[in-house]
């Protein structure tokens, strides 16, 4: 059985180190050649991230993977998969994602006619600023480029002005002061040379972890034999999801080392951005904003039923509770 697979960003490590090897080599090995895949990525196909799961639901391809946040246009409830700041380390982020999994499963089934196979993280979304920033309070009044709706709303709640510009326009915008700060994965920022045009790095995951959802079209899934289903499910869990999570924490430390020059950079030249460590008071205040403003707004967008499910799952493992009214 040959599956047509569309991967996430082709230039990022998740695809190069985990997605591509898994689908093009590992899968065929563990299934003894019974399951194989032809693989491309959404950026190589020239389709927008937000279209990946829409096309998956139409059966254009069999398996698709992209950042869950890209798909929140079709389901506000899905925003609950990636709430900023509730997980500051990989282990907690993984717990939150695992807790959210049943919700995500249901959303994908209903909205995209798809079955979720795995959820793996991108490195956490941190903040690059051009100009002095010493804490989260310092973001007030600044123009910040955010990707994803909840991050933008969160920044607005913190008193920053959310600016919506494309990834490629960011370096120029930072340099010319069109924006003061921008949120992206530490590794992507490193690779895209954002250190050239920004001076301070806030390493809190203000943009969340951008979990990448891998899903298979439900009709395709149902057409597989039980043996194929279980091979695929266990293989993707053990050989893709688990290692991707395992490397997430280390990757962040390394990315930060490469950007700030504090510690050893294993993949390139280290640079000298100033590391801004948020203090506990700061963090507490930001969490307060999150809980009192951002999450209730989300609960309104998504509906009380989803808010309750979120409370009982993600909320429970991260110790965050949103008040339902």
């Amino acid at each position: 059985e040959e599956l047509s697979v569309v991967g996430s960003w082709s230039s990022l490590p998740l695809y190069k180190q985990y997605e591509m090897p898994f689908w093009t080599e590992t899968l065929s090995e563990v299934s003894g050649g019974d399951l194989t895949a032809t693989m491309t990525t959404h950026d190589q196909m020239g389709i927008a991230g937000g279209d990946v799961f829409r096309m998956l639901s139409q059966g254009v391809f069999d398996v698709g993977m992209t950042v869950g946040d890209y798909a929140v246009a079709d389901s506000a409830a899905l925003e609950g998969l990636d709430v900023p700041l509730i997980a500051t380390d990989a282990a907690t982020a993984q717990k939150a994602v695992e807790a959210a999994r049943p919700m995500v499963d249901d959303i994908y089934k209903d909205v995209f006619n798809a079955k979720v196979l795995a959820i793996a993280p991108y490195p956490p979304q941190v903040v690059f600023c051009n100009g002095e920033v010493s804490n989260l309070e310092g973001l007030k009044g600044k123009k910040v480029r955010a990707s994803g709706r909840m991050t933008a709303k969160f920044l607005e709640a913190l008193g920053a002005e959310g600016v919506n510009i494309g990834f490629g326009e960011v370096p120029g915008a930072l340099q010319r002061g069109v924006v003061d700060c921008a949120v992206t994965g530490a590794g992507s920022g490193y690779n895209a040379g954002w250190w050239e045009v920004s001076s301070h790095l806030i390493t809190l995951p203000l943009g969340g972890w951008d979990p990448v959802v891998t899903a298979i079209n439900l009709d395709k899934w149902n057409s597989l034999s039980d043996a194929q289903k279980s091979t695929l499910e266990s293989a993707i869990k053990e050989k893709f999801e688990a290692p991707a999570w395992q490397s997430a924490q280390g990757a962040l430390a390394n990315d930060i080392a490469c950007l700030t020059g504090t510690g050893e950079c294993t993949y390139g030249d280290a640079h000298d951005m100033t590391l801004v460590a948020a203090n506990d008071e700061d963090l507490a205040k930001a969490k307060e904003v999150l809980i009192s403003e951002v999450l209730p707004e989300w609960a309104e967008r998504a509906g009380p039923e989803w808010a309750k499910r979120w409370n009982d799952s993600v909320g429970k493992v991260t110790g965050v509770e949103l008040t339902l009214n």
Partner: peptide, 22 residues
């Protein structure tokens, strides 16, 4: 039309602070 239909069925709103009903 399938794009519009999908949008109508999911009630999709833009993935932005504006939340434009798509």
């Amino acid at each position: 039309w399938s794009v519009v239909a999908k949008t109508l069925s999911t009630g999709a709103r833009a993935n932005t602070p504006l939340e434009t009903p798509l």
